[in-house]
Design a protein around this nucleic acid. Sequence first.
DNA 1: TCTGGGGTCCTAGGACCC
DNA 2: TCTGGGGTCCTAGGACCC
Length: 422
Amino acid sequence: MYALADCNNFFVSCERAFQPQLEGRPVVVLSNNDGCVVARSNESKAMGIKMGTPFFQLKSLVESGKLVACSSNYTLYGDLSNRVMSILSGVLPGYQKYSIDEAFFTLDGIKPSDYRAVCGELVRRVRRCTGIPVSIGIAPTKTLGKVANHFAKKYPGYRGVCIIDSDEKREKALALTPIDDVWGIGWRGAPKLMAAGVQTALDFVRRPEAWVRGRMGVTGVRTWKELQGTPAIADELPAPRKSICTSRSFADMITDKAELRLRVSDFAGICAQKLRSEGSAASAVGVFAHTNPFRKDLPQYYPWEMVRLDTPRNSTQEIVKAALKALDKIYREGYAYKRAGVIIDDIVSAGEIQGQLFETEDERERQRRQDEISAIMDKVNKPGSNLLRLATQRPGHYADGIRREHCSPQFTTDWEDLLIVK
DNA sequence: TCTGGGGTCCTAGGACCC
DNA sequence: TCTGGGGTCCTAGGACCC
């Protein structure tokens, strides 16, 4: 059996954990630059506010006091996520992190008759120790775990834990689950299914396998099997990522090349840091830039360029240098850029790097020193800060240049920055 | 005026091989 | 009338997730 633990309205709950006056009020959390809604409390969902709503459409609600809006504070959310996951994985075996706010576990070694008591106690402990409400769904497959989790959240009577452990419960739950709520059925697939008479998850599992395969391919069949109770989604060991991307929209559009170089240097620096943190290196560094697609009155340009390195590298210097080279190739005067990003590809484990065939002694020495400098940067820099940086990067906090007019303090991590400054 | 960011997997089609 | 057959690898784009 699987257990899926999922934090309720996670970003909103993080804000509430340190601002209890927000409890019971309609709250939304906004994307970077206070652009659109990325998390909602139950109260704001009940008001009909949709995911992705542009913030400017909600400003009057905020000004009249009917809604509270928080800028996103990813440093805080990341830290609380670690605390929640550490409590859960201290008790449940088979931890598989799925996203910042959810994780799958297995229940190996726990007696089925104890599932409810063990998980119920965990829900209470996470709430007590972190302030974050969490729900746990228990079922024989991951997709059914998602279904069970929905019920655990929706009905207070479950007290945060819902178990699907018989065919009778499974069919009852599937009959109450609209097809567009099923994990793996997206916004494009659901309307097609509904047009074919499939309204609920139960309608879906009652269709023959060949019917599903013809319309939805192998991924559709996986979901179909999982809903029957047959596991079709493998347990994954945490594999090194295949690509790494750091990108942001800018608070204001950028036309100046020097300014764009600073931002791209920052993004490349963050990518290099992520690479090193998982012991990887990469030989392809890509850069993209976008104009603002909503400004139909301005000329549009969406260039993209990839630069290849002779050998996989992970030093900040090499990655930044490659990114700036790619930027040089795509930059054009006369456009107002709203967003840019750096994508790292062809990632390998740093231990497996083969030296270049005709590499000179000087070149090897230069690389060794760069790696040493990067290692020192990693020791000094805390997440979200770049106290030690290249001259091509900007000073200050990672969030500078991002509009955050409603941001909470770094309740749990500010002291680390203070220690560094001292 | 104002619209996020970071991933994975699958598939179709092209390039290339013999 | 009419244009091999079979295979691999790579890439771009679509779809999905949070």
